[in-house]
């Protein structure tokens, strides 16, 4: 466990807490893509099935349970408790455009043709594109609440720190997980455009709005 990895996990957790706090305090999930949140819940569910089969560490187990709980709570807030505030009109990304290729690819390109391994691979590929419905929603409405941009910033920061973690592990332990690294690079690229807007607008106190 290196410093990039732990900071990455903390950023990831912070992102999920920021999102939950936004919904809980404003009693609204306006501007949040329910579809992205469903995809993240699917990502955690399919990746963390090893909770039932393998014990890795207390840290690993506890974090997985927290991530699952945060993710499902968020989905419940959007489609249950605060569904009246959910902007389903603008959350119009077609999920089959992501799910079909990701499912196909996880059957074709995996480490082992076993159910658990294919589901793990599916979760890695799906995570790399799960934010797209959210980014699509922002590009459609042309704006995002500042707190939503903080959420996206910490999610992107988590991805970037994981890249640093893999570079570190490659040099210190010769560890290299090709599927995770390639997907992680793809995922991080999706945040680049957003990072630019975040630094040039949000950090200068302006609201994120697209021309």
């Amino acid at each position: 466990m290196n410093v990039f990895r732990i900071l990455g996990d903390v950023s990831h957790l912070l992102a999920m807490i920021i999102l939950l706090l936004k919904i809980w305090r404003s009693k609204s999930c306006a501007g949040i893509s329910g579809k992205s949140q469903i995809l993240f819940a699917l990502v955690f569910t399919t990746r963390y099935l090893d909770l039932l089969t393998n014990f890795i560490s207390i840290y690993n187990t506890v974090m997985k349970i927290i991530f699952l709980a945060c993710s499902y709570t968020t989905v419940y807030m959007i489609y249950g408790k605060y569904r009246n505030t959910f902007d389903s009109e603008n959350d119009s990304f077609r999920l089959e455009f992501l799910l079909v290729p990701v499912t196909g690819l996880s059957f074709l390109e995996n480490y082992n043709f076993t159910p658990l391994e294919i589901l793990w691979t599916f979760s890695i590929y799906l995570e790399s594109v799960a934010i797209l419905p959210q980014l699509f929603m922002i590009s459609k409405t042309g704006e995002a609440e500042t707190i939503t941009t903080h959420y996206l910033f910490f999610l992107g920061l988590y991805r970037t720190l994981y890249l640093a973690n893999w570079i570190w592990r490659y040099h210190t332990e010769s560890f290299y997980d090709q599927i995770a690294v390639v997907s992680g690079v793809v995922q991080t690229i999706f945040y680049c455009d957003f990072f630019y807007l975040y630094v040039t607008k949000v950090l200068k106190g302006k609201k994120l709005s697209l021309p």
Binding site: I56, S57, Y162, N165
Partner: peptide, 10 residues
């Protein structure tokens, strides 16, 4: 093989 499961990242 589940015995080789070494995925410690989240």
């Amino acid at each position: 093989d589940l015995d080789d499961w070494d995925k410690d990242e989240l």
